[in-house]
Design a protein around this nucleic acid. Structure first.
Lengths: 193, 193, 193, 193
DNA sequence: TAATAACCGAGACGGTACGTCCTGTCTTGCT
DNA sequence: AGCAAGACAGGACGTACCGTCTCGGTTATTA
């Protein structure tokens, strides 16, 4: 079963994702219609539906194009590893497309479990796995004791970024990366119980 | 020149908010239409528009009905104060109406600054102010040194809750309240710089 | 149950029928879309659908507007009565709207029995009844013998008109009225069996 | 320089006409799409378009396959000749494909003169010529006087058949053949003027 | 107690978008 | 050159909401 028929125009592939990106950034998720995307891409609704089943799928594709797979660097120290992860996350959450499409995508994900897990698998899981591996390496080195709650550490690292992506409580910058990493290290090394 | 004419039917006031609440919880924000709300409330679109200018305004009204102003208790200890704040926040973020309407409201707020600040003033600012006051009292008591970043502490406390409200990374429960308060205290008392 | 709500704009009632009439005459039945009718009427598809469930129904309404109920005159003689009927029929079949919409309507009627009987009842039955009554009067006067086949006489009178409405075999004019009436009289008074 | 390349698959020639015939009989003219025909014929639109420029052309081809050229028998008597013509016409108008496709074809013919004359030449003219020749022979035999209107006689013979093919006013059967031939003979031999 | 002003239900209005279907044309690889 | 497969621009389908509007009818207050 090789590929048959007229091949899809790659120009349209990118034109559609470009149009969606621009419109969502300009108007927000709920104001963006498939119709407008097709119009701006200089094509028809049909060509869009041929490629993507719905608006959230278009945006997932557009986001995937921007944010490839996580590099998951090993810098040798826990702090270095976590800072690397946070730089990656900051690049993600500070992106205008992410900021504008995230609420809509989350709304959609809450209804459509299929789409939710797809979204989760594409953008959340890889970053969490990087963090988990960095922690494991730190335990093996003896830098931190075992027995921490990985999920909680991940939420601690990501939560504030999500917060600032969705609400204007503060900038998403280098300083925030340092603050979150410090907080995580404080928690991991604290004697409090 | 007070108010003339037939007064509004209070039954409709509540029927509309009830209908909106039920529909958003069941279908999510983007799938909820003013038409459906009016229908379910047993009235007409016009009666809805007479009370609220748009869907997000309806939801803000519905949320305001559920979540009154923050009590801002003074328990005597920083930990106690923060735990009180977090219990209040957990009640908020764990509410199904909040979980389902938050993405839509945030999307709308990103576009309409007016609405954004209204939303912010109603549900974010009071809780942040409670936290800020608790911190001030702790400084005055000498429990913590001065010079911390209030905004950052607030984001540290709220971020993980928001995270779990929007993504299925973990439960929003008593344990999370303790974890976030511990993290905040670790940060506030840490010697790391 | 009196009439409630905002009344329909009568301007649109006529604008829609006008638009449909013009378009069908210009482009034919199958090339006429509801969309184009709405556009030409200066309104929306919704307003059209609110009044008529489908294209054939629009055309039946447009035809009804042009061709009221049959006068069914009693001229005193069979020839006079039949000529009156045929003048009425000629006016009908020579009408451009009829010529252009008839094929489409018949096609639709062949599929949708409901619509078929509606069409039949509005435009065929009344004219056939006039003819039947004229024949009955002639029998009572003793002008023609009893025992003829009414349906056949009606088809004999109408068939050639329908033929010339749908195919360019000849004009639909006064002469055709005379020819068809003569033929019917020949048949009714013939001794052939 | 005759014909190059792969020859057309004759299987498709008939499969396409079969599919068109079945679909038009089942769904009527306007509901029949080229797409559906190709699908049912187990081929593609392109193969259809390669053979026929449009839906009406397909149907003309399908009709031509069923109804060859007129035999035009000479039975020796005018009545016999006309009855032969009418048997031929009855076979035509009683055919389900004819009954279902005729309205659509006529609609199309009213717009596209080219197609109209093609349709006319294929199915109307031959039958009318047979009738004309039968009449000429009768004149030469002295059975009827000269000076009749051939076109009118043809419409008189065909009109009622067309009527009953398109509307449910009566059966298209042997009796109708006799009635129409009698009517024509009555008219041709009548002294009325 | 009469006028007035706002509310209510019902439903029409011009718009925009939905997701699907079909049209006639066009590549592409294979026969 | 034919064929299966399938993409392309374009147009229409019938439906759903949007926010606004016009009706007839119903309360309350104010004059």
């Amino acid at each position: 079963m090789v590929k048959q028929g007229r091949p899809r125009a790659e120009v349209l592939d990118t034109a559609i994702l470009d149009a969606a990106t621009e419109l969502v950034i300009a108007d927000g998720y709920v104001s963006t219609s498939i119709d407008a995307i097709a119009r701006r891409a200089g094509t028809t609704r049909q060509a869009v539906y041929r490629r993507h089943p719905s608006l959230p799928h278009i945006l997932i594709a557009a986001l995937s194009r921007r944010f490839g797979l996580d590099p998951a660097a090993d810098t040798g120290s826990l702090r270095g590893d976590l800072v690397a992860v946070q730089h990656n996350q900051i690049e993600f959450f500070a992106d205008p497309l992410v900021m504008r499409s995230l609420p809509g995508l989350l709304d959609e994900a809450a209804r459509d479990a299929e789409l939710g897990s797809q979204l989760f698998a594409a953008f959340v899981t890889p970053r969490r796995r990087s963090t988990a591996r960095a922690l494991e390496r730190a335990v093996q080195r003896g830098d931190i004791p075992d027995g921490y709650d990985t999920e909680w550490i991940c939420d601690l690292l990501t939560g504030p970024l999500l917060m600032r992506a969705l609400m204007p409580t503060g900038p998403i910058d280098e300083n925030l990366a340092q603050l979150t990493v410090n907080a995580a290290l404080d928690v991991l090394t604290a004697t409090s119980d």
